[in-house]
Amino acid sequence: MTAIRNDWTKEEIEAIYNGPILELIYQAATVHREFNDPQEVQVCTLLSVKTGGCPEDCSYCPQAARYHTDIKVHKLLPTDEVIAKAKEAKESGSTRFCMGAAWREVRDNRDFDRVLDMVKGVNELGLEVCCTLGMLTEEQAKKLKDAGLYAYNHNLDTSEEHYEEIISTRTYDDRLETLDNVRNAKISVCSGGIIGLGERDEDRIGMLHTLATLPEHPESVPVNALVPIEGTPLEEQPRVSIWEMVRMIATARIIMPKSMVRLSAGRVRMNTEEQALCFMAGANSIFAGDKLLTTSNPEVDEDKQMFQTLNLKPRKAFKNEESIKFEQIPS
């Protein structure tokens, strides 16, 4: 039985990450089968409920107000419109619905009250509700939890060493503090990063090390490949290769066996065969729908065809909760 560890060293993770690629995929697939159904993939939908105008300077993000991109800024969407989008997502097979707002941090105002109403409404549909709203306090996290929030996404993006090259308007410790606040509020933590930001392999290993040595592994670890957007500082970055994605996914699966590893941004550039490699290496979640906040994503019909070709089945909502309840039933 593979042990769940929070004491990984960078050297151990480096040895895994740099292993022969086919052996690495085999090891990850073996661990994946020990903890998960390899034919099961969770389908998630991500909706931008407030777009653009963000005061941050994240070098990859077209929503930063200081960059000249084609993003159309819009204020917080009406609650009814968001609930309607969530219903559409559920009908298309999604079991998790994530709402993103281009804020630096959550503020205690009417907009936050409206987000709480959105969370309540989506939760009532039987979907796992996730939000990504920037930094938040523990008190705000508890309000989200009380409203029915299941998960909160707050990515580390990259290693602590490379972080200042990508973002200067907040610190790495700010990100870790938000993760602590989310965990303390008993909300499921969703945190991963982006590759293709000009980082080195050491930075990718460093980010994985930070995630794998948190007090608890994130329930969800998104692995994103940069989609360069014209008008951002990283618009000229070369495409990340499929083998780089596979190394990240496989290493994440081996060192965080129970986590959902999400094949996230960059999937639109992958064919079915490349995505199949990622699933073999331990990815067990995707984002569906034609948009990931502001970047393009494969069409829903394409994903349905891929699921049929690969004999994949959608994961049910709240499956982790059901397994916990089952384990607590006395024999």
Rank of each mutant, 00 (worst) to 15 (best):
I4N: 12
W8N: 11
T9C: 09
K10V: 13
E14M: 14
I21F: 05
I21S: 05
I21R: 05
E23V: 13
L24Q: 10
Y26G: 15
Y26C: 13
A29K: 06
R33K: 15
E34T: 15
F35H: 15
P38F: 12
P38N: 03
E40R: 11
V41Q: 01
Q42I: 07
T45N: 11
L46W: 07
T51S: 12
E56L: 12
D57M: 12
C58Q: 03
C61Y: 04
C61S: 08
Q63K: 08
A65K: 12
A65H: 11
R66C: 07
V73R: 13
V73H: 08
P78W: 01
P78N: 11
K87V: 11
E88Y: 00
K90T: 05
E105N: 14
N109H: 13
D111R: 06
G121P: 09
L125Y: 03
G126H: 05
L127D: 04
E128T: 09
V129P: 02
G134S: 03
M135H: 15
M135L: 08
T137H: 10
T137E: 14
K142T: 15
D146L: 15
A147D: 06
Y152A: 02
H154W: 09
H162G: 00
H162Q: 15
Y163M: 13
I166T: 07
I167F: 10
R170E: 14
R175M: 05
L176P: 00
D180A: 12
R183G: 08
N184T: 05
A185Y: 03
K186L: 08
I195Y: 07
E199Y: 03
D201M: 09
D203W: 13
G206F: 09
T210I: 14
P215G: 01
E216Q: 11
E216F: 11
E216W: 04
H217A: 02
P218K: 04
E219T: 12
V223L: 06
I229R: 03
E230V: 12
L234R: 11
E236L: 07
Q237K: 15
P238R: 06
R239E: 05
V240T: 10
V240L: 06
S241N: 08
R247F: 15
I255R: 02
K258T: 10
K258H: 06
G266Y: 06
R267G: 01
V268A: 10
T272I: 14
T272Y: 04
L277S: 01
A283Y: 01
N284T: 06
I286Y: 03
G289R: 05
K291Q: 12
L293Y: 10
P298M: 04
E299T: 14
D303F: 05
N311T: 05
L312N: 03
L312S: 07
A317P: 12
N320Y: 05
E327P: 03
